[in-house]
Design a protein around this nucleic acid. Structure first.
Lengths: 127, 127
DNA sequence: CTGTATCCCGGCGGATACTG
DNA sequence: CAGTATCCGCCGGGATACAG
């Protein structure tokens, strides 16, 4: 066996279904998760209809699904105030705030490198 | 206007379709992108069939789509050696390697906090 | 105001078979 | 070996209407 044939990839690199690579690190949450995080990062509790405004008037069904998923995962708290009319407020938990670090890191990458990606795509189309 | 009503969310927070938040920072690439990055991070050129092994024998169609998308975005280089039988090798570009930082950051988050998420989900089911 | 209830569409991801 | 060619099922995301 010669030197240059050695070192195949380990077949079990991603065997563990819970390993952090398979956790699809670049696919945390749904389409709207990151934007909801941004809406809540200042710590101020926000209401359902308040969130819809910057989120392009996302439909209620989709916003509900997004918020429920984040609540279920422990990223935010849903507080119902028993009033009339009803008032519900959403706030990030400590776990939810812990996502802001990775989010910033990836946003910083995007700001720095998205132009290169755009260039690469143009070049690829061209030839 | 009282103090406690102030500071609504800016309606145009995510207006720019290319803004780094809307870039879905937690949704970079497809299901297999991160794993391909891991397979190539050691700098060693890898062949098509070589990649399939750790990737759970991903179907050729899906692997091709993943690799083509990454090539198109400038993340990797596809080199065809004119031989018989054919040999094709994939290598990360500098741009592709620049993704490893954010990837590590998010993987570190996952290792540190996924147990909390699991707990939160269990608690949500239970109550 | 804060959501449900329906219906719907596109597209990612996959299974299988075939080719240069 | 390194892919194409088809076909297909699922589900995320959305539009619209309605309810407590």
């Amino acid at each position: 066996m010669t030197e240059r044939e050695a070192r195949p990839l380990r077949p079990d690199m991603f065997r563990d279904p819970d390993c952090s690579d398979r956790a699809q690190p670049f696919r945390v949450g749904g389409k709207w998760t990151a934007m909801v995080l941004r809406c809540l990062e200042d710590g101020r509790p926000r209401r359902f209809s308040e969130l819809r405004v910057p989120l392009h008037w996302i439909t209620p069904k989709v916003l509900t699904e997004t918020l429920r998923a984040m609540e279920r995962d422990g990223f935010l708290l849903r507080v119902v105030h028993e009033e009339n009319p009803p008032r519900v407020e959403y706030t990030l938990t400590a776990l939810g705030r812990s996502l802001l670090g990775p989010l910033d890191t990836t946003c910083a990458w995007a700001r720095a490198h998205v132009p290169e990606v755009t260039e690469a795509r143009a070049a690829y189309e061209g030839g």
